[in-house]
Design a protein around this nucleic acid. Structure first.
Length: 376
DNA sequence: AACTCGTGGCT
DNA sequence: TAGCCAAGAGT
């Protein structure tokens, strides 16, 4: 006991639930967030929510989750869906490999696991898109397994609570954090324990200006006792993202525009776009676009009016895209460097899953057409 | 082990 | 503004 500092012991008796965990669970019962994926233990629902929540804020996920569960209410519905339909439902959420992996995994579970989502982290991690965190979250929340989850919230909360001075994202730092979490995991209540720490991280133990005065765990918090809670977790800096200039062509023919589909893997994999590509050194925008269209589609184009300039920041680089209205001069386009190709009428554009920039281009095309043809 | 993979909100 | 970084996984 530490009567002098007023801080409680951080070590629970082996096999029992710690005082810290008990206090946390009481707080969770009273203050937990009401979220659409809570109040069910349906493994499919839990799984979908956890995939959507990867690197994505709760407020962003909620409308997507609701629409998804309406459109694909069961594993079987998802397994039977077309990939384009799945990607369209995911459009705007980002990290599109999550959607493709979830879809593949659903088909795998239906075909190889008789439609039963596995309950152990070991088996769960065999599913595409399910890593250490998601496996632990599904196993603990949907199946009641005693597994500690480690996400951004828990990493931050635990780094403060246990005053972890190693870089929180390093393998050593994460191992230390997981050991602390495992030591406090209340048997049979891991799902609530994990979610309670996520809610605490979202509402109290926030990245900036943590509300320590409202924290149910304040008396156990080692970094607060030392006054270093705002210096935890220890973060490492990222390199500044490079700036890239890109061109794209809106190629018109017979009232339709040409779309290409990006390769399945990599950035925006499987999504549709207006063809084009990256500007090289010493190249003008027009030269760049002619070259890219020649390489991608094997045709020569005539470049007309600029449609707009679009800026977008990805995680690791920033793009400035120049879009031009264009038309074909020579040749019939073939998808040499794309997975597929389609001529789309304006009213069909909404059916093609696209990333942010290309959706913006498509929206601008619709605006232009409405101003050209006010009647519709 | 370090890099890639989206988008949006916040400061 | 520009940087930070969210309920991470795959390679």
């Amino acid at each position: 006991m530490s009567a002098i500092t007023g801080t409680k012991s951080s070590k629970p008796a082996a096999g029992s639930s710690s005082e810290l965990a008990e206090r946390l669970l009481i707080w969770y019962r009273n203050y937990r967030r009401v979220l659409p994926w809570r109040g069910t233990n349906d493994p499919y629902a839990v799984w979908v929510s956890e995939i959507m929540l990867q690197q994505t804020r709760v407020e962003t996920v909620i409308p997507y989750y609701r629409r998804w569960m309406e459109q694909f209410p069961t594993l079987q519905h998802l397994a039977q869906a077309e990939e384009q339909q799945v990607l369209k439902a995911w459009e705007g959420l980002g990290y599109y490999s999550r959607a493709r992996s979830l879809h593949r995994a659903a088909r795998l579970v239906v075909e190889k696991y008789q439609g039963q989502i596995p309950a152990s982290t070991k088996e769960l991690m065999r599913l595409p898109g399910v890593g250490r965190y998601t496996a632990a979250a599904v196993a603990s929340i949907a199946f009641g397994q005693d597994e500690p989850a480690l996400d951004g919230n828990l990493r931050r909360v635990a780094a403060r609570l246990f005053n972890v001075s190693l870089p929180a994202r390093s393998p050593e730092g994460e191992a230390q954090i997981l050991a602390h979490l495992r030591a406090h995991l209340p048997p049979g209540q891991a799902g609530n324990f994990n979610q309670a720490l996520m809610d605490l991280g979202a509402m109290i133990c926030t990245p900036r200006k943590p509300a320590c005065g409202d924290c149910p765990l304040a008396e156990w918090c080692q970094s607060r006792r030392l006054g270093v809670q705002e210096e935890r977790p220890v973060l490492t800096r990222r390199a500044a993202p490079p700036l890239i200039t890109v061109t794209a062509a809106v190629i018109w023919r017979d009232g339709k525009v040409l779309l290409t589909r990006r390769p399945a893997n990599g950035l925006l994999g499987g999504l549709w776009e207006f063809p084009g590509g990256k500007q090289e050194d010493g190249e003008t925008l027009v030269e760049c676009l002619r070259r890219e269209i020649r390489e991608e589609l094997g045709v020569e184009i005539e470049i007309g009016e600029p449609l707009g300039v679009y800026r977008h920041a990805y995680t690791h680089f920033k793009v400035t895209l120049h879009a031009f209205i264009s038309r074909l001069r020579h040749g019939e386009p073939q998808p040499h460097q794309a997975d597929d190709m389609a001529w789309a009428a304006l009213e069909e554009l909404s059916r093609f899953p696209m990333g942010k920039i290309d959706r913006q281009i498509a929206a601008d095309l619709l605006k232009i057409s409405r101003s050209l043809f006010p009647a519709g």
